[in-house]
């Protein structure tokens, strides 16, 4: 494999990891606050549809992004009302949200555009363009580092940079602010937070709200950055891979960056080499696609480090009277 191919695969991995990273951080906020979220997939799908639909009509990806966040937030609100206000089962609410998004996106797509659930293809201005970082073209000819800067680091859409910037930001919020401390506490021991006079309900709703915004970014990137428009079921399990990455990262922001990069890389390699020839054995692409899930099960099993979820995760909080 030459250097150019290597750069291309890494470049593709960065593009493919971005929606995973955004969704993974979304899940991180929600789960750290004690609300399990298996509805990441649905929220991303809804955001992908609404952003693509609005971008197609207005020709403006920023309006699309806002719509995407709106669509994702609507589902996040349902999740919050069901699992916080009415203390329902968080997992079942997540399942319902996934199906709701899967059905509604096609119904609305058919109603608005009549293209069998697709949205019209976005051209030029309707998408998030690629940003060329300063000096990228002048530095291109510098061996190795120049090419890495020009081809790997430069030339992505704004949302890719936002996603990467969100990693240190999330770390700072979670571990260096009062809000973050309370958020983590509410996921471990909500009763103690309640005793300290802080509203568990409000904190969890805030976490779910952040989760909704980030899923909105993830979906919008998918439909208006990575591809040009919405197609039926376009998230294709990415919400679940993000969930897997979250577990793989043991609910930590920096580790999430590495786990999503790993899973993005696996997808990039599977796309590039449908049948990877390793000399002795040929690895079929199906195996590469299944690898994130297999790795997550192994991590969950605790054979390679142990993934322990926030202690109060999945439990609705009942206030003492």
């Amino acid at each position: 494999m030459d250097f150019a191919t290597f750069i291309q695969i890494l470049d593709s991995a960065i593009r493919l990891m971005t929606p995973l990273l955004l969704a993974c951080l979304a899940g991180l906020y929600s789960e750290r606050s004690g609300v399990f979220d298996i509805g990441l997939e649905g929220k991303m799908l809804m955001a992908a549809f609404s952003s693509a639909a609005v971008a197609a009509v207005t020709g403006n990806p920023w309006l699309g992004l806002l719509a995407g966040i709106g669509g994702s937030m609507a589902l996040a609100a349902i999740h919050g009302i069901a699992s916080i206000t009415f203390r329902g089962n968080q997992l079942i609410a997540g399942v319902a949200i996934n199906f709701l998004a899967s059905g509604l996106t096609i119904l609305m797509g058919q109603r608005f555009f009549g293209l069998g659930g697709r949205t019209p293809s976005l051209t030029g201005e309707g998408r998030f363009g690629e940003i060329t970082l300063p000096f990228a073209d002048t530095l291109r000819n510098v061996p190795v580092l120049g090419r890495i800067y020009a081809e790997l680091i430069s030339g992505h859409s704004i949302l890719v940079y936002v996603a990467f910037a969100l990693v240190p930001l999330t770390w700072w919020v979670l571990f260096r602010t009062r809000f973050g401390l309370r958020l983590r506490a509410v996921g471990e021991n909500p009763a103690s937070v309640d005793t300290a006079g802080v509203s568990v309900t409000r904190l969890r709703f805030a976490a779910i709200g952040i989760c909704g915004i980030l899923c909105g970014l993830a979906g919008a990137y998918l439909a208006t950055g990575l591809s040009a428009g919405f197609v039926k079921e376009m998230t294709a399990g990415r919400g679940f891979i993000a969930l897997a990455a979250l577990i793989f990262a043991k609910w930590r922001p920096w580790a999430a960056l590495f786990s999503t990069f790993l899973f993005g890389l696996l997808e990039a390699i599977a796309n590039r080499y449908p049948d990877l020839d390793l000399g002795l054995i040929t690895v079929p692409s199906m195996f590469m696609n299944a690898l994130p899930y297999i790795l997550t099960v192994i991590i969950l099993a605790g054979f390679v480090g142990r993934a322990i979820p926030p202690r109060a995760g999945g439990e609705p909080y009942v206030k003492e009277r």
Binding site: A82, G88, A93, A96, I97, L100, G103
Partner: peptide
């Protein structure tokens, strides 16, 4: 699929 989602939502998550 939407009806299925709503049934899951109301009978499962919004039971209370």
């Amino acid at each position: 699929v939407v009806i299925q989602a709503l049934v899951i939502l109301f009978t499962g998550a919004l039971d209370n």
